[in-house]
Structure formats: C-alpha cells, structure tokens
Design a protein around this nucleic acid. Structure first.
Lengths: 190, 190
DNA sequence: GTCTATAGATCGATAGAC
DNA sequence: GTCTATCGATCTATAGAC
C-alpha cells in the first residue's frame, strides 16, 4: 500500500504532464507509455480502467494538492492576508510562473469529458475558500464573493494569455495586479 | 468565386462548432461530416489539405470577424467609449453570453498545434486595439496597456469559469465588472 | 461536386509469456 | 509487475464511380 503509493505518484505526474500538453483526446497511450517509460501492460496494471481512470486520478490528485496547499491555508491561517499571499505564491509556483497550464481549465474548455463534476468542485472550492479569506480580511461579503470570482477566473485567463503569447510575464503581471486589487479598497465605489 | 464564398461560409461555421466542442484532436472527420452534412470526399474537395486547413481557415475567419466587428470599431470610433461599449456588446453576443467557448483560447491551451502565430496575432491585436481605445478615453498609456491586458485575459478566464460551472451568469458578471473598472478611475492608486 | 469504398496508420484495450 | 503481440475499432486521407 505504502510502497504502491510511492511508485504510483511519479507515474501519475508524468501522465498529468501528457494530459496538460495534449488534452484528453490527444493524450494517446503511445504518448503515455513514452512519458512514463512503462509499457501498455504496466499502465493497465496500474489503471485497469485505462485512460479514463488515469485522467480521473490525475484530477483527483490535483484537487487534493490544491485542497491541502491552498484552500485549507486560505480558510485556516490566523492572519487571513497571509493565507491569501501564500495562495498567490503557491499558485505562481505550481503553474511555473505561467509556463504551465491548468489541467482543470483545459478540461473545462475541452468539454465532452466525464469529469465535469470534479472540475466544477475544484473551481467552486477555490472560489469559496478565497471569498472567505477576503471576507475575513475586512471586505464586505458581497464584494468578497465578487473579488474571488474575479481572481479565480482571472488566473485562468492569465494562463490562457501567457500561453498564447509564450510570455510568462503576463501571468506574473496579472498576479501582481490581483494583489494590488486586494490591498487597495477602491472596490467600494461600486 | 462569389458563389463558392456563399456555400463555403456555412460549412466553415459548422466545422468551427466541432472544433470548439471537441478541440483540434477531438474533431474527427466523422464528426465533421456529421456536422456539415457532407461526405469526406466533399470536405476534401473544399479543403484539399484536410483537417489542418479546416482549422486554419476557421481561425482566419474568426480573426477577420473580430477585426471587422471589434478591433476596427475600437480604433476608429469617434467617441472611444462607445467603441469600448460596442466591444463588450459584440463580445457578449459572439460568445452567447458565455455559453460559447473561445476557439483561440482553447487552441492556445491545447498547444502542439501549428496555429501559434494566428493565435498570438488574435490576442495581441485585441489587446492593442483595446489599449488604444482606453488610452484615448483619457487614461495614462501605461495604465491603458495594463487594463487591456487585464480585460482580454479576464474575458478568457470568464469563459473558462462559466463553462466549468455551466453558469453563463459568471461571464456576464465579469463583463459588468470590466465596464465598472473602466468607468471609475481607481487604478491610479498604483 | 458529391458520394462510397478502401487504404494504411494509429487508436484504446486485452491476452499471455516471462 | 513488466513486457510483446495482437485484436477490433477508428483515424486521416485517397481513389474512383456517378
């Protein structure tokens, strides 16, 4: 169990990279075997239900990582602003300053995948945790929800644009912009 | 020429919908024949270079539409604010209030497609036209560029989130938020 | 110009040797 | 647990009848 965990994780990460780069339909078994260094037989030994199970487990792994590293700190940190700043830092690191894509966002656009529920949960969990942190930093409840929606969607858009322009600077500039937006209370004008 | 144009356009639109729904790799010829009502032979008569040519022409068609309906009005309208408002309206209409996906954004994330140049041009043209309109509405040049980047990427993110949550309201709320952001000069704080 | 038939490659998945 | 061999289905693309 524990040793299976230890060997399963790097395989899952290699698989995740293939899904990120090629999308669900483009992630062929030949690409997956090449990326993992495993034969088809071994892959089906790890994931008896094949490609769909691989994608489902990758998404579950991502959800767990964000839950532990971002959502929980957002909800629990004593000073809520440090939770928010830790979110920005973890997000920048996870997406490699904008060079890496969000698989949840890609799958959301891709559509026609059986992962709608997982994707929906990921985004609503993120937004809820962030809205709570913003609210307890002193903003009104309505404004917090709105800002959380702006930032969660804004991060996705920043990843799209950064990848389209092959310019990670776009992502980092957007993240700085979100930080400023939370620091200055100019949203109260409306 | 003119009659070929007339018959080519609806075919191209049907093809575009398939790419939007299934991505480049998921847009199989069988789906394309089903959506267009044409046999493979006819499709290859229209597009001798096959799927890649179909996608390239779809993207070119989209670029042309945005150029004519959004970018030019942004650059040319007498009162620049009416150009910006017309952009918001056309954008909401084009993306069907957030129910329709941006094919350029999807292809940008999809990666590994040979359309990087077209995608890059689309986004930089949009941002440049919008920045110019914002600048001539009275904002500083630096702030205009930044706001244009925020809005162009923000629209993409709003489409991602709206599709993930199956909630077009998200897209419409983000668009309203952008309008407010342009109306109130609170960005000068930093 | 539209269709059907089909080629050749690759797809996801399985079987069975080791 | 890992591999190779192979299945049937589907893929993109072509050929040729009408």
């Amino acid at each position: 169990m524990t040793s299976s965990r230890r060997s399963r994780d790097p395989v899952l990460q290699a698989i995740a990279e293939v899904f990120r780069r090629h999308g669900y339909e483009g992630a062929s078994l030949s690409r997956l075997t090449a990326a993992t260094g495993l034969g088809k037989g071994s892959l089906y030994n790890f994931f008896p239900d094949g490609k769909e199970q691989m994608a489902a487990e990758v998404l579950a792994h991502i959800q767990c990582w964000f839950e532990a590293e971002i959502f929980v700190p957002l909800k629990e940190t004593e000073g809520p602003l440090t939770g928010i700043e830790s979110m920005f830092r973890s997000t920048e690191q996870y997406f490699q300053s904008g060079q890496r894509i969000c698989l949840m966002g890609l799958m959301a656009l891709d559509g026609e995948t059986p992962f709608g529920t997982q994707i929906q949960a990921y985004f609503s969990d993120w937004q809820a945790a962030l809205a709570l942190a913003i609210h307890s930093s002193g903003k009104l409840k309505e404004e917090s929800t709105d800002l959380a929606e702006e930032i969660v969607s804004g991060i996705q858009g920043a990843l799209v644009l950064a990848h389209a322009q092959s310019d990670a600077g776009i992502f980092l500039r957007r993240m700085q912009s979100f930080r400023r937006r939370l620091a200055f209370p100019c949203g109260e004008l409306q």
